[in-house]
Amino acid sequence: MQLAVNIAVLASIYALISCGYVLIYRVSRVLSLAHGELMMLGAYGLYATASLFSGQPLVAVAAALALSLLVGVLVYVALMWRMTGESVLAAVLATIALGILLRGAMILMFGTQTRHPLEELGWTNASIEVGDDARISGVGLALVLATTVCYGLLFAFLRMTRWGIRMRAAGQNPLLAAQRGIGLHVIYALAWGLATLTGGLAGMLIASDAGLESTMVVIGLKAFPAALVGGLDSLAGALLGSLVIATAEVLMVYYVDPLLSDVVPFFILLAMLVVRPWGFFGSREELDRV
């Protein structure tokens, strides 16, 4: 039972992170390897706003989320915008370089010690009993809820709203989208903003649970196989992929070897790439596009 809870929490973490990969990839065909760093930046944002708005935790959280959105848009406006039309490698490398830059800058600004934004907000991480013999932390529960809400909203946004439909259209055929009057830069900036928002939210929650330190980048990177296993251009796939990877990881760590934790996602990724490279729900022609 405890295992099931652990799987649910881990799957939520991966899902919340990997939807950022999917959003950016689906819209602009760029793989953002700076996602882990952007997550961390979101968490530091919460830490900063928490001390700024002390006593008003909700305001602090809202401000931190808005900050994340803004950062994402800024990343596009300042850097990724220039990478349109460059090769896949160049764009990916640009995100890697951005990640390095951010990591250095964050250490410069916030130091290397572990931070606890939750305490800063004045909240405690209560432990809640689930069923007879399992427990979930309050933040863990929040993670599961946040992931559910985020995915619900994203699905609704992409299906129902005009801008969501435009985003899908631009991802599928950018040339035609431009011809139909859709400003691609606006769409791309929006995608980066949303991706960073969800990533930042994930970062904030993880930091609230386990403290804020540089290992968070590794979690960001481990969520990436989840996105790819599900199919890089499918949100539903990211959800399923996260579940598969979280299950495998929790079980392997529990029954075999804790050291495996960092490699299990990549083992599954490799297996998937061999068998079905486009993922569970990804579209097949993606392979030829890149």
């Binding site: 435009r166 899908r168 599928q172 139909r180 859709i182």
Partner: peptide, 15 residues
């Protein structure tokens, strides 16, 4: 046309 979008969505996406 945007192939993964329905006809209605194709028209909706247009600015």
């Amino acid at each position: 046309v945007f192939e993964n979008l329905t006809i209605a969505e194709n028209l909706e996406a247009v600015v």
